[in-house]
Simulated assay, not measured.
Amino acid sequence: MTYTDSLNQSRLSAAVQRIKPSGIRRFFDLASTMENVISLGVGEPDFVTPWAVREASIASLEKGMTSYTANAGLLELRVAIADYLERKFRTRYSPENEVVVTVGASEGIDLALRATIDPGDEVLIVEPCFVSYAPLVSLIGGIPVSVPTSLDNDFKVMPKAIESRITERTKGILLSFPNNPTGAVMGEEELGKIADVVVKHNLLVYSDEIYAELSYDAPHVSVASLPRMWERTILISGFSKSFAMTGWRIGYVTAPEPYAKAMLKIHQYLMMCASTMAQYAALEAVTNCEEEMNEMIISYRQRRNFFVKSLRETGMECHLPGGAFYAFPSIKATGLTSEQFAERLLIEEQVAVVPGTVFGEGGEGHIRCSYATSMDQLEEAIERIGRFIQQVAKERK
Rank of each mutant, 00 (worst) to 15 (best):
L124P: 01
V100E: 05
G192C: 05
F388N: 07
F239P: 09
P144K: 08
A381T: 13
R232C: 08
P227S: 10
L139W: 04
T167I: 10
A82R: 07
R232E: 05
N180E: 12
E292S: 12
R90A: 14
E44P: 00
Y68K: 12
S6Q: 14
S132T: 15
E380N: 11
A31M: 10
I162A: 00
L214Q: 13
A52V: 05
N71H: 13
A31D: 10
G360Q: 11
Y326G: 00
A278M: 04
H220W: 13
Y216C: 03
M186L: 15
F243E: 04
G108A: 12
I236Y: 07
E163L: 07
L191Y: 14
I125A: 05
K332Q: 14
A80G: 10
I140P: 05
L226A: 06
E317G: 00
E343I: 00
C289E: 15
M316D: 00
V103N: 11
R26M: 04
F306C: 02
E348V: 02
V145E: 03
V223Y: 10
E361V: 10
Q279A: 04
Q350W: 00
A262C: 01
L40E: 10
T66R: 09
Y216T: 06
E96D: 12
Y206N: 06
A115D: 06
Y3R: 13
I38Q: 09
R78P: 04
Y216F: 15
T2V: 00
D110Q: 05
V137L: 09
I250E: 05
A184M: 08
S330K: 13
E96K: 12
G183L: 01
E395F: 00
E188T: 12
G335D: 03
S138N: 09
A282R: 07
I331A: 05
N294M: 14
W230A: 14
I19V: 15
A285V: 04
A15D: 09
A285H: 03
Y269M: 10
E44Y: 10
Y211V: 04
G192I: 08
E291P: 00
N294D: 11
P135L: 08
T182W: 06
R18T: 06
Y216M: 02
E380T: 13
K63A: 15
I143M: 08
I19N: 09
E317S: 10
P219G: 11
T91S: 14
Y252K: 07
M293K: 15
D121H: 14
G64T: 12
A184L: 03
D208E: 09
L204Q: 05
G238T: 08
Q279M: 12
Y252F: 15
F28Q: 12
N305G: 00
V185K: 04
E209Q: 13
F155L: 07
A393E: 15
T170N: 11
V358I: 14
G73K: 11
V286N: 06
S57V: 02
V205M: 05
E55C: 04
E284W: 00
A161Q: 14
K88E: 15
V205D: 13
